[in-house]
């Protein structure tokens, strides 16, 4: 569940704050965040995940009003409630696939659950790669590992930033299907930020948030 009201963010040095249309997405829903590069998609994801704090307006995600939380509290909240699939995946090159997933437990301050890691890797068909380094993975395998990491703690919200940016048509379809299926299976609210029309087609029926990058009036 994601609800925003009168959300705005002021970049340091910018003449006016970036304003975002209101969103009201039920738990388990899917949202497409669309717009050209630099329109504020990453900023919106940053606000919803608690990485940034809004200049104005209210953000409510998974029954938590993020405005009420301090920086450290938002970090702790994000560890348990938001799974993020960054555009460049950000798998740590220094760690094995298994340790990359274990990092989630480190971040959340939990004991490592090796069985949960095994099950999640199995569910995404990359269990055999657990001992490898990210450099030894293909693009598709790396994306599956990153998705496994995002879903490991069964977060109620899954944020994907440009998940199809550098994929060919076939891989794009596979990636989106994976995202949608696994989010649904986990009952997670799925947000996909994209400027890729293939993603828009594949996720037909999803709610949309259109960002133009212009200063927008509160809808």
């Amino acid at each position: 569940m994601i609800t925003t009201l009168g959300l705005a963010f002021q970049f340091a040095g910018a003449p006016a704050p970036l304003r975002f249309p209101d969103v009201d997405l039920p738990q388990g829903g899917t949202l497409l965040v669309r717009g050209p590069s630099g329109c504020g998609k990453s900023t919106w994801l940053g606000l919803v995940s608690g990485l940034l704090s809004p200049g104005a307006g209210q953000v409510r995600v998974a029954n938590t009003v993020l405005n009420d939380l301090s920086g450290a509290e938002r970090d702790r909240w994000r560890a348990r409630h938001v799974g993020v699939l960054p555009q460049r995946l950000h798998l740590s090159a220094s760690l094995s696939v298994r340790d990359n997933l274990a990092l989630v437990y480190f971040a959340a301050g939990l004991a490592v659950d090796q069985r949960a890691i095994d099950e999640r890797l199995q569910a995404l068909g990359v269990y055999g790669l657990a001992g490898r380094r990210p450099a030894q993975l293909s693009g598709g395998q790396a994306q599956r590992v990153a998705l496994a990491r995002a879903l490991l703690l069964r977060p109620p919200v899954l944020l994907a930033d440009e998940p199809t940016a550098s994929l060919d048509d076939e891989a794009c379809a596979t990636a989106l299907a994976l995202l949608r299926d696994h989010a649904q299976a986990a009952g997670a609210t799925l947000v996909v930020a994209t400027h890729d029309s293939r993603a828009v087609l594949a996720l037909a029926g999803a709610a949309e948030l259109r960002l133009s990058g212009q200063q927008e009036a509160v809808a």
Binding site: R76, R78, A79, R80, V84, H90, A93, S94, L103, A108
Partner: peptide, 15 residues
């Protein structure tokens, strides 16, 4: 070298 790793850890919720 680890700028990306550090960003990731912040993203995962590391203080």
């Amino acid at each position: 070298e680890r700028r990306a790793d550090i960003a990731l850890m912040r993203l995962l919720g590391v203080r």
